[in-house]
């Protein structure tokens, strides 16, 4: 009788079953749904944040309002968590996409696991399973992305987050520099440690402030548009601020919501002042 030797050890690496590959393909659409959910959550908290700022600055509050630090912290924490989730989902999406392509390729070249192919897979030894591959990719991608931009930089691209975070300082004094401004003092119009609330073109208080992405100089929308109107489109013009080397065009301008917040606080203070004088 032949000595039938049966190796009962399972291989350390097992190929992904065809059926599962198909399921894996559809995971992408689920992911989009989740991303949409997170975006909705960000929008919701942002709307609450805006409503809170409006409440603080509304005329229903005759006297200067005491900001509720707990409310503010709750809003900030929630917003930050959602933004971080969105960021991580986006990293995940990117690496899952790459991993999927690789697994699909790999799977095409691998025979299905049967008793006959078992030995082949035993020889593979300890190859990484597909799930490990994705996690590995994801961690690599995330690390790379965070080298480009820290999480603080990411949350600071959300205007409502920045407004909420700085509300207390601006309420104290609308021309207060913000804590983050200390890092790039050269880029900010600071006069005696204070931020100028006046448009450098008209010298009047800002109206619909816009900021140049190139040099962070701030202008009133109407005056900078008038200044740039004389320029030939894309080429733009010298920044109106003396000493600034930037060339700016319409495309470099975006609304400056922090300066807008400063102006709202300034106007509310003006109204409060008049109320006090009337009394």
């Amino acid at each position: 009788m032949a000595n039938l030797h049966i190796n009962a050890n399972l291989p350390l690496y097992i190929p992904l079953h065809h059926e599962l590959v198909r399921e894996f393909e559809t995971a992408d659409s689920n992911h989009l749904l989740v991303l949409q959910e997170v975006q909705n959550a960000i929008d919701d908290v942002s709307a609450q944040g805006k409503a809170y700022i409006d409440f603080v600055l509304s005329d229903d509050n005759r006297a200067p309002v005491q900001v509720n630090q707990d409310t503010l912290n709750t809003l900030l924490t929630a917003l930050r968590q959602h933004i971080v989730s969105k960021y991580e989902l986006e990293c995940w999406k990117q690496s899952a996409h790459q991993a999927r392509a690789r697994i699909r390729n790999q799977q095409r070249n691998e025979p299905e696991l049967t008793v006959e192919t078992m030995d082949l897979y035993r020889e593979y030894g300890e190859k990484r399973q597909f799930a490990d591959e994705i996690i590995h990719d994801y961690q690599d991608d995330k690390e790379l992305k965070q080298q480009e931009r820290t999480m603080d930089q990411v949350v600071n691209t959300y205007d409502t987050y920045v407004q909420l975070r700085n509300l207390v300082y601006i309420l104290q004094d609308p021309s207060n520099p913000l804590p983050t401004d200390a890092d790039n003092e050269d880029d900010v119009a600071v006069a005696g440690g204070k931020i100028s609330l006046r448009d450098p073109l008209s010298l009047d208080y800002y109206e619909e402030p816009v900021i140049s992405r190139k040099c962070m100089h701030v202008f009133s929308r109407a005056t900078i548009h008038q200044y740039l109107a004389g320029s030939s489109g894309r080429l733009g013009k010298n920044c109106p601020v003396d000493g600034c080397e930037a060339t700016i065009s319409f495309n470099d301008l975006k609304p400056d919501l922090i300066m807008a917040l400063r102006m709202k606080v300034l106007r509310k203070r003006g109204r409060e002042q008049r109320n006090i004088e009337r009394i």
Partner: peptide, 14 residues
Amino acid sequence: SILNEEQDWRPAIT
């Protein structure tokens, strides 16, 4: 130079 448009004049100069 600060009074010359081709040189150093900038609208923010007061």
